[in-house]
Design a protein around this nucleic acid. Structure first.
Length: 355
DNA sequence: AACAGTCTCAACCGCCTCGAG
DNA sequence: TCTCGAGGCGGTTGAGACTGT
């Protein structure tokens, strides 16, 4: 019972679109709006199938599409998200405003994938090619922190598998450096030469934030499912580190790390949230209420691309608990990914710095 | 200049999801 | 509950551009 292909039809044109066809499609959509793609060709006077029209519009003609060279930040975001999400181009595209999934997919296949391979990284697993070193080994040998950080790693077992980036091996995500074999002659070249100059404490902090976020996600999950007990094991990170938060010097952050700075603040006093998760009396309903109350204005107050990126998973959060959990999970996933990324791109990627 | 090999990316294909009836 | 179809998604293709010889 195979379905009839939608684009089977007599005299339907295929291949590259002409300017005239584009004009007809744009004109029709401007007048009638998107949707009803099957009927559009006939109504717009196009000898194309509806699907082809939709793709042409979505990938090329839509006015808010950003075209041209990918920025350094965009590249890093793609690599990060690919490491955690795989070939989920539409998901990745949601984090890159004005970029289409098709464009990202093409860019990955033609540029980033090769670059990773050139740098000895498996573009599928984001692990070193031809390496026997397990991520766990790398983590413990290269990313060993103080006691709390060791706890961070050991507690990762309490995190949902989804929360863990597939590529937890440190230093796997490559830096896009100017030494790339395929240099681009464009405005983004200079940005490609930039390197993140983050201190080890920054990486450390971000890792902790990520772990906390993941833990909060788990706790919320348990709360949603009604399985949260007062004895629910909390992340050692949460237990040990929340009191330490204020020790970190946030002024170390560069603009790209602002989301985490925001996150720290978000998790601290700004929202007046009680994050004393050590307490068995922690009130999750209060947390949910506070979170939902603060979410809207938070989203308005923060500015900048990366904040948008960070918050995109939670920006639509309402009091609706069904939506809450995926958002929290996405948020924690992002932080975990981002934390790993920051660590990986840190030039001081050396265990000594964390001891 | 001509040709072959390589690269890029718009477009296509086929499967999947989800909502309507 | 089932069927159908629109729209979405990821993989693949192929025409044109580019590069090397």
């Amino acid at each position: 019972m195979s379905r009839k292909p939608c684009c089977v039809g007599e005299g339907l044109k295929k291949g590259a679109w002409t300017a005239e066809e584009d004009k007809k499609l744009i004109s029709y959509i401007h007048e009638h709006g998107e949707g009803g793609w099957r009927d559009i060709p006939q109504k717009a006077g196009l000898k194309r199938c509806g699907k082809s029209c939709r793709l042409r519009w979505a990938n090329y003609l839509k006015p808010d599409i950003k075209r041209g060279e990918f920025s350094y930040e965009e590249e890093q975001i793609i690599i990060m998200l690919h490491a955690s999400r795989g070939n989920k181009w539409s998901v990745i595209a949601r984090h890159l405003p004005k970029r289409t999934d098709n464009e990202i997919k093409n860019y990955w296949n033609t540029h980033l994938k090769k670059r990773l391979i050139d740098q000895g990284i498996d573009p599928v697993t984001h692990k070193p090619l031809a390496s026997n070193t397990s991520p766990a080994t790398l983590k413990t040998s290269e990313f060993q922190d103080d006691d709390s950080n060791r706890d961070d790693q050991s507690q990762s077992g309490s995190m949902s598998p989804k929360s863990l980036p597939p590529s937890s091996s440190s230093c796997n995500l490559p830096e896009i450096s100017s030494s790339d074999e395929t240099p681009k002659i464009d405005g983004s070249l200079s940005s490609k030469k930039r390197r993140f100059q983050r201190s080890s404490s920054t990486s450390k902090l971000l890792n902790k934030v990520a772990t906390r976020a993941a833990s909060i996600g788990n706790i919320l999950s348990a709360s949603m499912e009604g399985t949260l007990l007062s004895s629910t094991t909390l992340s050692p990170c949460l237990i040990d580190d929340f009191s330490e938060t204020s020790q970190f010097h946030m002024d170390e952050f560069d603009p790209f790390s602002q989301p985490s700075e925001h996150t720290i603040d978000h998790m601290k006093d700004d929202n007046g949230m009680n994050f004393d998760l050590n307490s068995s009396e922690y009130d999750f309903s209060q947390f949910l209420e506070q979170f939902s109350n603060n979410e809207g204005e938070e989203a308005e107050n923060i500015g900048g691309y990366n904040q948008d990126l960070l918050m995109s998973d939670v920006s639509s959060t309402s009091v609706d608990e069904d939506n809450m959990m995926p958002n929290i999970t996405g948020w924690s996933n992002y932080l975990v990914d981002y934390s790993d990324f920051v660590y990986d791109t840190n030039q001081d990627c050396d265990a000594k710095n964390f001891i």
